[in-house]
Amino acid sequence: MFAYTIRRLATLVPVLLGMTFIVFMMIRAIPGNPAQLILGQQATKEAVASLTKRLGLDQPWYTQFIDYLTGLFTGDLGVSLKTNVAISEEIWPYLAATIELALVAMAIAIVIGVNAGIISAWFQNSWFDYTAMVLALVGVSMPIFWLGLMEQYVFSIHFDLLPTTGRDNIRVPVDPITHLYLIDTLIQGRMDQFSEVVKHLILPGVALGTIPMAIIARMTRSSMLEVMRSDYIRTARAKGMKMFWVVYKHSLKNALIPVVTVIGLQTGLLLGGAILTETIFGWPGIGTYIYDAISYRDYPVIQSGILVVATIFVLINLLVDLLYAAIDPRIKFK
């Protein structure tokens, strides 16, 4: 397994390199000069020309690409054109905000999604099954924008239960240490702030978790149905085992492999795909960081931002592959 992991990690290098190249070429294919956008409508031509030169944007693309790669191999993610700060210094707070949100969203999605799928399969064709699967269909096709605003309207304004936007109570802000506020508030022993942070996570977490929840529920159900038809389940039931254990122990273990795959993929997607949720809930995450960079033509931030997200994405997938062996001992990596 160790050798397998090393081999897999090695294959990640060409994958990430290829991705970097594609992103690099794509953002340069969009017209629009970053220098002009940085300096604004007021700028003189000379200023734009000199900034273009200073940013190295007048160089041929292959020179720029090689410069960027050289930087990457020395651990330099580049400097943001907009803020003039090294990306490696400024990216973490954004990434942390999104990781926290994505983990909560996935926790909600997994707990509800997996259980709904299991119960639907257990009581196939029951009213629960039908309702859950219709809801799942609605969930997959739900526009997050609309869902987010409705959540705010119902739970924040109408019932006054939860806050509308942000990560913390702005009037009593959290002092960041790791930038994962759940952890920071615990370290500082600020339980009042901890509960505020939890409250702030619920609405965006549900909004972001809805689509993965629906996908997970459907995948769990179909996977479970297949397993529950197999011989060893009939045997287990024939020897008088309680149905609950048959479902949650014997069936689930074999049904989990495709579900874990989906969970891994969705977690990766949430990291980069939280833009809408972040926009609506005033969440200072990596999605809006990269999105803003695109409209600003902040090339280094787009490249390195996507690179970081992509790296996490492939690492999660590697992790999922390794988990297969943990779930099912019959799977061996060679």
Partner: peptide, 8 residues
């Protein structure tokens, strides 16, 4: 990751 960055 938090350890590597000096915070923005």
């Amino acid at each position: 990751l938090a350890g590597c960055s000096s915070g923005g």
